[in-house]
């Protein structure tokens, strides 16, 4: 077989297209649009019931990989096995929790012939929610005030400075709005029991929730910026419908973020725009969001651009996208057979 006929093999994680979906299936959909011919998608899964595993028109073959807690050695060992079989060209990891390992492994993967396109560990750590306030101060970006605390008796001082209501956030996930000291204490105990320490206590900001999907080239240039307003929000705070916006201040904010940090790869800026128009950065997610297919639908296919950049192609920054493009997520009961479930469960491959 000549090289021209060999498919481009891209491995993707985050196949959990559930009520709080991982981005994997949306990333793959964008890749299939961007490379309509001759692409082979390898799914990398953690759980046996991640829907993407069973969607054979989306994922060509899935391999289970070890949980992030198993460490980099277990991961590289598994990836070597998969690479021997599949000859992976690019891996796109899509979970926050796995990124640390993939960033650490990026040089080793490259020696195997597998490319990634990820932020540095410094960039990854700097935007962590524990460091967000200092991150904002350093780069002159508008972020809510916060306090990182380890003891419940520190809440009183937090409230004095930030006022009520305030937001009590877990180290990795979850946020509870507290209107009184009692509520804040309850939230502190609940979140520390679930996620450990520290706890982040953040100034409460109200406004319109906007997310921006961004692709940075690692040299300070934003190759693509697409802002989206959430039109429908689930009880988990996820966008179930959203619309692309035309707003130069949001585009400029994303460009400033990329220029200041030299961000490399995809990311999502979670913005709260206040009634007086101030765009607060509430969180920086270091990977593509689950709604990333909207960028492709609007004319800036960020996953496809990332793959091309990972393979060394020079991509001119996009300047146009369709405003008013809407995504509406939907549920679908996919039917499979126990034999498929058995294969992925017993052999870790499907």
């Amino acid at each position: 077989m000549s090289d021209e006929l060999k498919p481009l093999v891209v491995a993707v994680t985050g196949l959990n297209a559930i009520d709080s979906p991982g981005p994997g299936v949306a990333v793959i959909r964008a890749l299939r649009d961007g490379f309509p011919q001759n692409i082979r998608i390898i799914g990398l899964s953690y759980e046996t019931l991640e829907p993407g595993i069973y969607l054979h028109d989306v994922v060509d073959k899935t391999y289970q990989i070890p949980y992030p807690a198993a460490g980099v050695e277990a991961l590289i060992s598994r990836l070597k096995y998969i690479h021997e079989k599949e000859n992976i060209a690019v891996i796109i990891p899509n979970f926050d929790a796995e990124l640390y390992n993939f960033i650490k492994l990026a040089p080793s993967l490259r020696t195997l012939g597998i490319e990634t396109y990820l932020p540095t560990l410094e960039q990854f750590d700097a935007r962590d929610k524990i460091n967000l306030y200092n991150f904002g101060k350093k780069y002159d970006l508008l972020v809510p005030k916060d306090k990182v605390i380890y003891q419940v008796n520190e809440l009183h001082a937090c409230a004095e400075e930030l006022g009520y209501p305030l937001v009590v956030k877990g180290k990795f996930y979850d946020a509870i709005i507290a209107y009184t000291l009692e509520q804040a204490q309850k939230a502190f105990y609940k979140l520390s029991a679930k996620w450990g320490f520290p706890i982040i206590v953040q100034q409460f900001i109200t406004g319109t929730e906007i997310n921006i999907a961004v692709l940075g080239d690692g040299k300070g240039n934003a190759v693509s910026v697409v802002p989206m307003r959430k039109l429908y929000i689930t009880d988990k705070g996820k966008a179930w419908a959203g619309i692309t916006l035309e707003d130069d201040t949001l585009i400029e904010l994303a460009r400033t973020f990329v220029k200041s940090t030299n961000w490399k790869g995809g990311c999502e800026l979670e913005i709260m725009r206040t009634a007086d128009g101030k765009p607060f950065i509430m969180e920086v997610n270091p990977r593509f969001p689950a709604w990333i297919y909207l960028t492709a639908a609007a004319g800036q296919n960020q996953p496809a651009a990332l793959v091309k950049m990972a393979l060394g192609e020079n991509i001119e920054p996009y300047s146009e996208y369709e405003v008013g493009k809407i995504f509406i997520r939907y549920s679908w009961d996919h039917i499979t057979d126990v034999s498929e479930f058995q294969k992925i469960s017993a052999f870790g491959e499907l």
Partner: peptide, 17 residues
């Protein structure tokens, strides 16, 4: 300037959605 209007009365503000 960027507000879209139609004869059917639909109005869309692309800055805010």
């Amino acid at each position: 300037k960027n507000v879209a209007t139609s004869e059917s009365g639909f109005i869309f503000n692309p800055s805010t959605g």
